[in-house]
């Protein structure tokens, strides 16, 4: 977490008055995502492996997805993402069953088993997908914001990318286009310090990634991505600015991923000390502490939330496991929207 420690962060937001109800829901969601990912890890690694392909876990970064969901308007906002997309999808309301069934390649998965772990979509809530090509989703996000601006829907697009994606050509093209056209697009770089095994300092000549948003005529700054309240406040401000027609914002949310890049990653590039230090800033632990300090929750209730989350995930996983695979002939479905020859 070298880089995340070095860069200057925005100070934590002042806490609004609250009875703790919303906060409990956010905590519940972060814990649900953590449980989902840990179960995914088990299902991937256990004998008779039920999940195939590349699979990237979100554990450690939950505050960013959950903070975004807190300010997300499902009736008009969009979210688009790279392949590390389980957390965002759950936070926007995808059922753990639809997500797990997709990981299993089942017909009941959110994409009918045609997308898999890296490509979770839920159009009806504005979840415009996980995308597997590093940086490939950034222009799409700009286009979604273009549609919002063109149709004057008042919605905004949250376009997520990793610290590795910052080095793709599309990053430059997209930031420029979004700002040039003053589009309601909020770029959120989830800086977990490493792209696969390449640390930020070995990939980016400028280690303060917020500076990579420099030169496009838009605000660009670092925030603490492990603090859900900070995420809510800072993304909220960017969202308001975008909705006012002030154009895009570039936010680097500094965080840490607890698991390997994907399931095959032995994490050789990390020291135990680094991982231990990162655990002290576990976004879930931080939030639990804050809520306890505010008297919104106690240990028993936290225990109960965790138990509930584990049960929900267990049920979803069992259901997904029992579900059928798509019929072989389904592989020909959903390629084209029209029938050909096409007369109009």
């Amino acid at each position: 977490m070298a880089v995340a420690d070095q860069v200057q962060r925005r100070p934590p937001a002042p806490r609004p008055q609250s009875d703790g109800r919303l906060e409990r829901e956010r905590l519940r969601m972060m814990m649900l995502i953590r449980r989902f990912e840990e179960r995914t890890y088990q299902e991937y690694t256990r004998p008779g492996q039920k999940i195939g392909g590349f699979c990237h876990l979100y554990s450690g970064q939950e505050a960013i997805a959950v903070g975004t969901a807190a300010i997300f308007d499902k009736s008009k906002d969009y979210l688009i993402n790279g392949y590390r997309c389980h957390g965002h999808s759950l936070a926007l309301g995808m059922s753990p069953h639809a997500a797990m069934a997709e990981l299993f390649g089942k017909a009941t998965g959110c994409s009918h088993g045609k997308g898999g772990s890296m490509h979770l979509f839920q159009a009806e809530v504005g979840n415009n997908g996980g995308h597997g090509i590093v940086g490939g989703q950034i222009p799409l996000g700009v286009g979604m914001a273009f549609a919002q601006s063109y149709k004057k829907t008042g919605g905004v697009t949250f376009c997520f990318l990793g610290d590795g994606a910052v080095n793709q050509g599309t990053h430059n093209e997209s930031l420029n286009l979004a700002s040039l056209f003053k589009l309601p697009c909020i770029f959120v770089v989830e800086n977990n310090g490493v792209a696969m095994g390449t640390q930020v300092e070995r990939a980016s000549a400028e280690i303060d990634l917020a500076q990579r948003g420099c030169g496009y005529g838009m605000p660009h700054y670092n925030i603490d991505g492990n603090d859900v309240d900070v995420v809510i406040t800072e993304l909220g401000k960017a969202k308001e600015a975008a909705a006012r027609g002030e154009g895009p914002t570039y936010i680097v949310a500094n965080t840490y991923r607890f698991r390997g890049h994907s399931m095959s990653d032995p994490l050789k590039y990390r020291t135990k000390e680094e991982a231990e230090r990162a655990k002290l800033r576990d976004p879930i632990k931080l939030y639990q502490q804050r809520m306890k300090d505010n008297g919104w929750i106690n240990d028993e209730q936290i225990e109960a939330l965790d138990h509930q989350a584990a049960q929900e995930i267990d049920q979803a996983t069992r259901q997904a496991d029992a579900d059928p695979f798509p019929a072989p002939e389904d592989r020909f479905q959903e390629i084209l929207a029209e029938k050909y020859p096409l007369e109009k």
Binding site: P139, N172, L177
Partner: peptide
């Protein structure tokens, strides 16, 4: 601007959104 990947992708994103 001269950004084929940028505006081709922008078009695809916009097409996905109506």
């Amino acid at each position: 601007p001269i950004s084929e990947a940028g505006f081709a992708g922008l078009g695809v994103g916009a097409a996905c959104c109506g």
